[in-house]
Design a protein around this nucleic acid. Sequence first.
DNA 1: CCCTTGACTTAGA
DNA 2: GTCTAAGCCAAGG
Length: 113
Amino acid sequence: VGYFDNIRRTVLLIPRGKVATYGAVAQAAGYPGTARQVAWALRGRGLEGLPWQRVVGHGGRISLPGEAGLHQRLRLEVEGVLFAGSRVNMKECAFDFRAIRRKRRSARRVSQK
DNA sequence: CCCTTGACTTAGA
DNA sequence: GTCTAAGCCAAGG
């Protein structure tokens, strides 16, 4: 399991209608401070089945340049992500990875009985 | 090993 | 709001 796979798994955790920043993904994947490498991972191969459009820049900026950026915005709007000007409304749509840990804990509590 | 490349981020000006 | 400069770090040449 390499760096790319961990980043990939983390991106898959972001639910529909939410987004996360490169930095947040890096940290959640266990590689704090490697935001640029997250971008590198998304740029590479194997994007099929990956919700890459849910990863945005700091403050909800779209970092993908050119037409691809517009494409990303459309894909997000279709998922229900709100925009405020040229940025994602992070207050509403930023995904908090800590919610995953809470979910896991409550799931375990249920299965334990 | 050194150098370059980024879908990055932060801090200043 | 914009722009630059510097820090950042996995890959690839």
